[in-house]
Design a protein around this nucleic acid. Sequence first.
DNA 1: TACATTTCATGATTTAAATCATGTTGTCAA
DNA 2: TTGACAACATGATTTAAATCATGAAATGTA
Lengths: 198, 198
Amino acid sequence: MIPEELLESHNALQKKYAKGDTIFHEGDLPVNYFQIISGDVKMSNFNDDGKEFIQGIFHPKQSFGEPPLFLNRVYPANAIAVSDCELFVLPKSSFLNLVKENASVSLSIIENLAQRLHYKSVMAAEISSQEPEHRLLKLFDYSITFFKIEKEADGYRIDLTRQQMADLTGLRVETVIRTIKGLEKKNEIKIINRKVYR
Amino acid sequence: MIPEELLESHNALQKKYAKGDTIFHEGDLPVNYFQIISGDVKMSNFNDDGKEFIQGIFHPKQSFGEPPLFLNRVYPANAIAVSDCELFVLPKSSFLNLVKENASVSLSIIENLAQRLHYKSVMAAEISSQEPEHRLLKLFDYSITFFKIEKEADGYRIDLTRQQMADLTGLRVETVIRTIKGLEKKNEIKIINRKVYR
DNA sequence: TACATTTCATGATTTAAATCATGTTGTCAA
DNA sequence: TTGACAACATGATTTAAATCATGAAATGTA
């Protein structure tokens, strides 16, 4: 998102996290800007009975958790390393300066936020009311365009576990499993070696 | 959002819409920036069987429908006048120039997008999994802080119809009615003259 | 290799919200 | 003031997803 050179010239640190590490907690006040160098990060909530809802999964070159930085609010969700990963970490004040001084950075922040808002709008409409089949297909299609997933011989491989699909759509694993089998029968997707192709 | 003077000096028009008018349709390519002078506007989707999902309701001084302007994408939802209203209408190119040239405008756009992303995150987590009671309470509480609703003697008056509450949370009217009665019994809210107070 | 853990899978049962039906109350305009 | 329409209300019934239970397959690791 923000070019490496700029980050480095503004005192950004590089920090490593192990799979499963929490980068920040829901309810924390933000003190840093984060941008992924390698690995994947998810932002998610846990409700009262422990069920997880994944707000989004982020990949190298993407940033996450900026909105509260601009609003002086606490984080609405946890950030957790999905795999071992390395991040740029830039203190809040340096980040805000960087944004103010640099028109191209603030434009790219706008585009990034607009993109994520778009994703949320699309998914919100699906999740709120639609049947499991709709939710999952929308998730697959959106993941494909959003994350630029590679096309293979059998279609785009969706690199999500059944549990992640459930947590991204608000369904239960069993429902996901049954639904994607139904989708396979309708030829909407292929399942090869337990992986979903669209 | 954007100061009146700036809008006027950039060729913004003022346009009137009657209650129920569609300002733009889902699937349209955006050609204008919109900012409300008076009245309320909702953005919403209709699913296959006609059920509406309200993405958000917007009030005077707020803008809506910007994300696709920055992304060169089509609108993900319809914009409909909830009441008679008057809007500033600024052509896309003038708007993008205004944002590029004016650091304070682009900052306020960022804050606005961050704010809405925050709302979507909070609601997504609720809607995805939680019971009707949670969904509605979150909606009420968020509406109160987000829309700066006036506090009256009996609490904050939630100015939404049962149907709107349903369409904002993805529930059915009947479920909303039954749930808010339950919430009243638990003293979470008051219902006076059919209006909900929190 | 063996063992533990995660992921996937499937059947039986429960349950809460959707749906259907119908009626009441409130509001606005002719 | 009446009549039409929107909003609110409530009971009965259906239904689809959650839940519970249990096991197999795959994956990682000591």
